[in-house]
Design a protein around this nucleic acid. Structure first.
Lengths: 338, 338
DNA sequence: CTGAAAGCGCTTACAG
DNA sequence: CTGAAAGCGCTTACAG
């Protein structure tokens, strides 16, 4: 049961540790017969290389940290899953860190990640965390931030064009003939939410549609707030005919609230979501939404990180990588009076 | 930007590495003034202890591996989240491994976890994986298996009493006056699914209700199969008045299918789920279900693992820890004709 | 084609 | 109250 080491393998195979190391890593030519003896010895002993020792020596752990606000949220769960998968394909393990909107927890995790010598960190949206990011960055660990804007001095950034996406969604509703278009936002300090609202406003003002302030209500990206805010909107004297909800979970809540109020979706009111979580295509009515390219975001984030890890020496210019959300039309929206 | 080491701290503070180590770990008394000098030096240098070196020396990595089939599945996401959290509270980081029902991936991850010298592994349900578990177990790494039955020679096991839970759910439907009670199962080779069906059968036979074989239909724990199987059931000449669905995701699909067919839930048919994922209480009708104690499962799994890690020397007797699912009555079920 | 030895950054007996 | 030194299991220049 004792853990076998290279020494054990070397002894059994009758060669040096150097040679064992080289056959394991294929890092220099080894006589075929020697090689086979080593391989056989490894097998006989059930040898597993000790990555900890290797990491100490080589300076790389083949491990990355992934910080997400809440891996239970379907949007983050999806990205986290894909990051794990791309990491795996590239030989990296990922340490899962839920920041939980808890500043202490996030800070502790960052210290832990630094101490564990992770090769890089993928940081996904969380409240205010410039200071933490700064510490990470100062420690010299490559960072990629996803779904969030930070100073480029700190990290590469991968995100979607939220303003444009907000514009496209709203424009789509306008083109369907809607004029009374409300919006359920996320927490006001979150940049993605703010930017989507800006796009929403731009589309409306471009079409010279004025928006009463009570049409813009604030949620918190959770189901319940979608329900609550939708109920509020439906009780307005001048009811909107379409609602742009800034994420799908709230949009699903909004559909639910509408149903309970006897308001038909999409006959009486069109509802437009954001994210395209898996659930959105399944429920009835299926949700029209702006799909985030999570696959691409995750792939790009991992690729960028791996590049940064590889070229840590040359000074890498951090960039902002902007992807596009795409309009997905399903059953929760329809032409006004159509 | 160069990583600081204990040597740097020792030099700046004018003490030995030994002393630095002892103030960091609080492992022997150090003169207050010396202590302060060391602390100050650490701060000035932005020193972070190198856990990799520590692990090599001490033999523990303060890291555990968590293998789940798919962290995107709400039930697993919930458990994974809680395990991460309990791990964090106990000073452990967790490496996220999605086995993905891919035997190669799972095997690779296990080798990786062994090589990375994780202190323990929490293994959550996956298809057939006795061989992998065996390898892990032979490497001497403590293992806790959750939501699944394996030989106790290999690991501690934490799970719910699926048979009893299936019985309780079905008995509840019977007590509501239902006699024609169908069941949508999960993949037939999964033990939890099989056991729940056994409980379902026991409750029915106890009440001397015979169940036509076409009332038991097989899904795969995904939304779509719930929809599909529900549709099939509703087209039966002798339609069931209640359906026990072996997980919530399929139950939500079943509700959705019913709605589309113009069958009211719960007026025309009662639907009973299993798991109590967060979504189940939110949708309308909210779902009656058997709640799995994920909080307790996660806590227990982490506690057991930590105990095993601590007492690796003394030979620990693996046990099966059986928790109870609890009946949650919501709006998707009602008395027959009530 | 292969090996001896230094060293990665810690912890911890041993010594005083 | 503190320090010098061995050693955890690897990798990799250096040497032959």
């Amino acid at each position: 049961m004792k853990r076998m080491t290279m020494k054990d393998v070397a002894d059994l195979a009758g060669v040096s540790k150097t040679t064992v190391s080289h056959v394991i890593n294929e890092t220099r030519f080894v006589e075929v017969s020697t090689r086979n003896k080593v391989l056989q010895a490894m097998k006989d002993l059930g040898y597993h290389p000790n990555t900890v020792a290797r990491s100490l020596r080589s300076g790389e752990t083949k491990t990355i940290g992934m910080i997400v606000p809440d891996s239970t949220n379907l949007f983050f769960a999806d990205i986290a899953r894909r990051i794990e998968n791309y990491g795996y394909e590239n030989g990296y393990s990922v340490i899962l860190c839920n920041s939980d909107n808890n500043i202490d927890k996030q800070q502790n995790y960052i210290d832990t990640l630094i101490s564990k010598q992770v090769d890089g960190v993928i940081f996904i949206s969380s409240g205010e965390s410039k200071a933490d990011l700064q510490r990470l960055s100062e420690s010299g660990i490559p960072i990629v931030v996803a779904d969030r804007v930070v100073p480029l001095s700190l990290a590469d950034v991968v995100l979607i064009n939220n303003e444009e996406a907000g514009y496209i969604a709203t424009k789509y509703l306008i083109d369907l003939g809607h004029r009374r278009i409300a919006c359920i936002t996320g927490s006001s300090e979150l940049n993605p939410s703010m930017r989507r609202v800006e796009g929403y406003r731009r589309a409306l003002s471009e079409s010279e549609i004025s928006v009463p302030e009570e049409y813009i209500v604030q949620g918190d990206f959770q189901f319940q707030s979608g329900e609550l805010m939708m109920t509020k909107l439906m009780k307005l004297p001048q009811r909107p005919t379409a609602v742009f909800v800034l994420n799908d979970m709230m949009a699903i809540g909004a559909v639910s609230a509408a149903r309970r109020l006897g308001v038909d979706v999409p006959d009486d009111v069109s509802i437009m979501g954001f994210d395209d979580i898996a659930l959105s295509s399944l429920l009835h009515p299926s949700l029209s939404t702006m799909a985030q390219p999570t696959e691409e975001m995750a792939r790009l984030a991992v690729e960028l990180l791996i590049q940064k890890i590889a070229h840590q020496d040359v000074d890498h210019e951090n960039k902002k990588h902007v992807l596009n959300a795409v309009l997905i039309v399903r059953d929760s929206t329809k032409a006004l009076g159509g």
